[in-house]
Design a protein around this nucleic acid. Structure first.
Lengths: 336, 336
DNA sequence: CTACTCCATGTAAGCGCTTACATGAACGCT
DNA sequence: AGCGTTCATGTAAGCGCTTACATGGAGTAG
């Protein structure tokens, strides 16, 4: 950084003041065409790029968006991130990314992303407690939540998918096309909004067919593979009566698949399985998974777009639910 | 950002000068214990966080690391990113991420990451031309390359995995354990270093067993699913004589699996298939893939660590090759 | 007791930009 | 011709930090 070319060098070379250079760079005031050409030429010749830090300091905004995730490498997050990245750069911002594992000691390190280095923050809750969100919000940082709503009344926008509708669709499919009636639901963590909305959809579908809701058919799968596998194994071993499985997430459904394999139960003939999310792996299973495609990437890009809007105009739609589509594959019993 | 708490507020509250506050924050000069306590108390009370921009401007470094990738959401990159992210924050830096698709028009936008906003850059080549790398390097930006070496003679460190050894191991396995002798190699893009090193390993293994190398058995798979699938279909249809397939990447191997499925050839009884990378999906295939586990995440963290070292000391190991391990599953014919 | 060192702290000059305000040339109007 | 506008451009004051240098009190030695 030291000794690099500054706006003053450009100004000198172009025979104008630094203010004028700044004006052509930022298009913040009209500049005579010929002057502009000279300035642009000087910039090109010197290979000048404005220092982000100086710019931020003077203009009072960082030109960065931040995203806070619990994890990067899971399929789900990387797709989300992809959408976010795209929209961020399309809007002319840079993207600062940080993860904060949920199990990590909280106070050991200050929040990596905040008003000091970011104009706005995308947060996937779970990593941040409500108190921390409120604190960031109080500091005046624009935020948009992903997949979970913010604490009440703060007016923080969120974007998610049509969980309830999607779940209803796929459960409905199990019932009306495949004649299932005792459908095991592998739920997510209790506070998880996705999970409870999906459960609602599941119940809606049952209700529409006059099937009574049996709480015994809702088992905790944590939306993850191992836990779900265990849960299904357990259900099988207790001889719980069910004829199909709705995994609240594809990961959960995959756990169920393992469990079924382990007990030698064929899919879909012995047991139908459906999921939710349409992760990339789901297509690769030996019996490709019927699931609900949630437009994860779009959630990311939409959230970034909203955040930018929030930053620039001060307002943004509070709740956005992106539509989902059912993906029929063979694990439900449909032939492919 | 406007109207936020500044170092001056803290100084006033603690009854010291701003310099002293700066000193306790950065531990850049000894401060009497009692003074330090007062300052820390003031910081805590006001909830002060230094403005990154002001700090950068004054100190002449950004405290950011940047990473440039062609893509985020592929398994491969997200694992890489995860390692990078961890090491970056462990070293006290923030992570700026940008993607630059290879097919994208080049000059439409200035480089998003450079000396103006980053202290150092991790680059996965392919997105950046050699000329651009040289240019960044000339500007004095510390860089570390991932998986591909930089242009000759610039002294830019790189980190990758033991491609040659890994390939040799897995091909050797095919030969000596499963008695294969005509092994199809699904290669990657021609300029791809991983690919050519893996091909070397493949040849090493053949040689060790006195099997002549047949160039006809090397087909272009582009390291991606569709292309490889097509290539294998094609080889099958031309009745090329081969008894097993070594996919230069798991993606390529998976393409081969599709092709085999399509032609009704069972794996591994009809054809053995092995890959390289150990992507997450590979374990989920109907015949779980025997492959070579490349410690992708570690490549990321190691690269970030090296970059930090390069920034701070001016030097770093030029070539790092991380060891790989063969993962035996059933697609090669091993029983599980 | 004086002179010198040492060390914690303060003073103030930037870091490279943006932007409110000042300036003056060109123009139109009466 | 004189005056007010308009508009492109220049001037210079910060933005919130870091850091070289100055300062002065305490400690040490002669």
């Amino acid at each position: 950084m030291p000794g690099s070319i500054t706006i003053a060098d450009v100004a000198r070379k172009a025979g104008v003041s630094t203010a004028t250079v700044s004006r052509v760079i930022n298009q913040t005031a009209p500049v005579i065409d010929e002057t502009e050409q000279r300035v642009r030429a000087a910039i090109a010749e010197l290979g000048y790029t404005p220092q982000a830090a100086a710019r931020s300091l003077a203009s009072r905004h960082t030109n960065n968006l931040g995203i806070l995730l619990p994890e990067i490498s899971a399929d789900f997050f990387s797709m989300l991130l992809r959408g976010v990245e795209q929209a961020t750069y399309d809007a002319g911002y840079d993207l600062l990314i940080a993860t904060q594992r949920e199990d990590q000691p909280k106070r050991d390190r200050p929040q990596p992303l905040g008003k000091h280095n970011t104009d706005g923050l995308l947060v996937f809750i779970g990593n941040l407690g409500h108190d921390q969100i409120e604190q960031l919000h109080r500091s005046g940082l624009p935020m948009v939540m992903l997949y979970e709503s913010a604490p009440e009344g703060l007016g923080i926008p969120m974007v998610t998918v049509e969980n309830r509708q999607g779940a209803q669709d796929v459960v409905e499919h199990l019932i009306s096309v495949h004649g299932k009636r005792r459908i095991l639901y592998l739920s997510g963590p209790e506070e998880n909004e996705d999970s409870s909305q999906r459960e609602q959809g599941y119940r809606d579908a049952l209700k529409a067919h006059g099937i009574p809701f049996d709480p015994g058919l809702v088992v905790f799968g944590d939306f993850n593979e191992e836990t779900s596998q265990q849960a299904v194994l357990d259900a099988l071993d207790r001889r719980l009566d069910f004829d199909s499985i709705f995994g609240g997430s594809d990961e959960a459904a995959i756990g169920a698949v393992w469990a079924l394999n382990q007990r030698g139960i064929p899919i879909p003939s012995g047991m139908a399985v459906v999921g939710f999310d349409d992760l990339r792996v789901s297509r690769y299973l030996s019996s490709p998974l019927t699931t609900v495609r949630a437009p994860i990437e779009q959630v990311g890009s939409e959230a970034a777009r909203l955040l930018v809007q929030l930053i620039q105009t001060g307002e943004a739609e509070l709740v956005t639910r992106l539509p989902v589509t059912m993906i029929l594959r063979s694990s439900c019993g449909c032939t492919m």
